[in-house]
Design a binder for these strands. Structure first.
Length: 333
DNA sequence: TTGTGTTTTATTGCCTCC
DNA sequence: GGAGGCAATAAAACACAA
């Protein structure tokens, strides 16, 4: 704070320093000890502020000779007459708001630069008919307000991004359920077909899908498959529900470290990867021709697997053209 | 007019930097 | 160690509904 040093000097007592004593005149604290340059500048009569400075004139904003009456812009708006003026001058100090013009001037200055160098502070104070300390305090408070606003904006943005991710995740869950149902249906048909063929005295085939229908589709590595051109998709139920990172393999070429993502601390197991299931050739053939995405990606956040960023530039999470399904507003990695 | 919530001005204490 | 920044807070000023 530019005026903090002065504040230390002026300071004293509780925050109720305002209005404490008659010795205080219009926010001009009497220095306890030696005077700082600022206190020298503001000491004594207000005539120190008379006249315009070399800066952009506050009169341009105030539209008059307001600067000749420092501290009294508010008064100008409220009172008239020398008597009232005198009463005002001698009344005990009260916290006084800056005039609209003063605030506008300060706002413009803040837009240019939100930090206040000592020289600028003095010049601004001179132009506005304020104490440099007041200008410094105004800038300090203004920075605090700006920061609060910025935090609100950031929060809104993050919340929006979260909602988008959540919606994507829920869509993905629905998609997954549909596909699981389809797999069950087709497996049923296949088993039925096998059974009828088996009845015609053909030797029974060994078929991986002869697993019981009740079993969940399982993600297995496609690396054992001869055909690596068509990675397939499957998903263990618990992978989505339990939050355990069983499917995460840091050696996977699709492993991406998102430890710098805003969602977690470095070192957390936040990662997304394409999962290649190790299933039979028949399944693979079928699935590779189906609507399933050629690659699928999950973003693991805490205990929940969220859909991750598109695996390719042309497809979104669902293997659909990206244009067909707006992705979240951001992928900050 | 009054009670209440919000905004603005100002203070205090702690921290960092030089 | 002084200067200046920030967070937390107090308190005056203001807005506004009842």
């Amino acid at each position: 704070m530019a005026g903090a040093g002065v504040g230390r000097v002026f300071g004293g007592g509780s925050s109720g320093g305002v209005g404490v004593g008659a010795s205080l005149l219009f926010n001009q604290r009497v220095p306890r000890s030696s005077q700082s340059p600022e206190s020298l500048f503001i000491s004594g009569s207000t005539s120190n502020f008379l006249g315009s400075s070399s800066m952009v004139s506050f009169e341009d904003v105030c539209g008059g000779k307001r600067s000749e009456r420092p501290f009294f812009c508010t008064y100008d708006q409220e009172e008239n007459g020398d008597e009232d003026y005198d009463d005002y001058f001698h009344q005990p100090e009260k916290k006084r708001r800056l005039t609209v013009e003063q605030v506008q001037f300060l706002e413009k200055s803040f837009e240019v630069e939100n930090k206040l160098e000592p020289e600028r502070k003095v010049l601004l104070a001179k132009d506005l008919g304020l104490q440099p300390r007041q200008v410094a305090i105004w800038f300090q408070n203004r920075r605090a307000r700006w920061k609060t606003k910025q935090l609100e904006k950031d929060f809104d943005s993050l919340q929006s991004n979260f909602n988008n991710l959540k919606a994507d995740y829920e869509n993905l869950l629905q998609e997954k359920e549909k596909l699981q149902a389809e797999v069950v249906n087709l497996t049923d048909k296949l088993l039925l077909k096998e059974k009828t063929e088996g009845d015609q005295s053909e030797p029974p085939k060994t078929y991986a899908a002869s697993k019981t229908v009740q079993e969940e589709p399982v993600i297995e590595s496609a690396s054992e498959s001869e055909d690596h051109l068509a990675p397939v998709f499957g998903c263990k139920q618990e992978d989505l529900s339990s939050g355990k990172s069983d499917i995460i393999d840091s050696d996977s070429p699709h492993y991406v470290d998102v430890s710098h993502s805003p969602f977690g601390e470095p070192g957390d197991s936040y990662a997304f990867e394409a999962d290649h299931s190790d299933i039979s050739q028949d399944d693979e053939d079928y699935l590779s021709k189906s609507l399933l995405p050629s690659s699928h990606v999950f973003l693991k956040i805490g205990d929940v697997d969220y859909p991750g960023p598109p695996a390719t530039s042309s497809c979104n999470n669902y293997g659909l053209p990206a244009d067909d399904h707006p992705s979240p507003l951001f992928w900050p990695y």
